[in-house]
């Protein structure tokens, strides 16, 4: 099962034999394959990678890899990943989420993970819908999208995750499309290599509740510009593009989160501070 330590690994070595629960045609299959390709391209070993997620169709990804997985509670993947990476800086930590998990219930953690700039790669499979709970509006759903829970549309304007990530301090911002697994794999590999908090929004259609998203194939196109290190510039571009610009859009150079430093004392010594002297 486990390949010998010396052998170079292929993408398939990162794929577990556990069959995904996803609907046929779901964009997340391709994201899974991009993740495994990227890990192979990075020359990593599965035991040194952890994939952390919350709850949702997209959040099922960890167990479909041969890496260490953490399938936590809804919306808290970034928090769990932050704890893991700070405690275990030796690991490569990927975080997988959906637009509901990551932007709605987990929205606050998104802001603060960007700010904190821990060396994580955050992959949000955005399908503009809650897939797992069968078709409700998410923070990226169009205001006029009709659903049982919001008949005639929610009437609420959508959220702009890439701009929010920039404003909050993410160190790497990219948009990918699941319909291009090799391109997505390349972006993911670059995101992992980039220090600090890397955010990759992957447009990943939900064929079941958003069959209209099959048309994304036609709409996605490579970003006509090179990544910038100027967040204001990147934000302006993203605010004004058509939402289907694919590629690395921003690469910053903020210092990643400062973790533990080597010990300088012992517990016994700390205890002595409380011992009464004199008397």
């Amino acid at each position: 099962m486990n390949p010998p330590a010396s052998a170079a690994l292929a993408a398939k070595d990162f794929k577990s034999d556990y069959k995904p629960i996803w609907c046929p045609g779901c964009g997340d299959y391709s994201v899974l394959s991009s993740v495994t390709k990227a890990l192979a391209a990075l020359g990593l070993r599965p035991e040194n990678v952890a994939v952390v997620s919350g709850i949702g169709c997209s959040s099922r990804i960890p167990a479909y890899t041969t890496c260490y997985g953490f399938h936590g509670v809804h919306g808290r993947s970034l928090a769990a990943a932050t704890g893991l990476k700070v405690a275990r800086p030796d690991l490569t930590v990927l975080v997988a989420s959906g637009d509901g998990d990551g932007y709605s219930i987990g929205g606050n953690h998104f802001l603060h993970a960007c700010r904190r700039n821990v060396d994580l790669t955050y992959i949000v499979m955005d399908n503009h819908v809650y897939g797992m709970t069968k078709g409700q509006a998410s923070p990226t759903t169009e205001p006029d999208w009709d659903s049982k829970l919001s008949p005639g549309g929610s009437g609420v304007r959508e959220f702009h995750p890439l701009v929010i990530a920039l404003a909050s301090g993410a160190n790497f911002v990219a948009r990918a499309f699941s319909g291009d697994p090799n391109g997505t794999a390349a972006i993911l590999a670059e995101a992992v290599r980039h220090p600090g908090f890397s955010f990759v929004e992957v447009l990943s259609p939900c064929v079941t509740f958003r069959p209209d998203q099959r048309a994304w194939k036609e709409r996605a196109h490579p970003a006509p510009v090179a990544p910038t290190d100027d967040p204001a510039r990147a934000a302006r571009r993203i605010m004004t593009d058509d939402g289907f610009n694919i590629g690395v859009l921003y690469k910053g150079n903020r210092k990643p989160y400062r973790g533990a430093v080597p010990a300088t004392s012992t517990v016994a010594e700390l205890g002595r501070r409380f011992e009464l002297q004199g008397g």
Binding site: G72, A81, G83, L84, V86, A87
Partner: peptide, 11 residues
């Protein structure tokens, strides 16, 4: 959730 993640990692 942070402490769960850290402890999952062994700390």
């Amino acid at each position: 959730n942070m402490i769960l993640g850290a402890s999952y990692g062994g700390a």
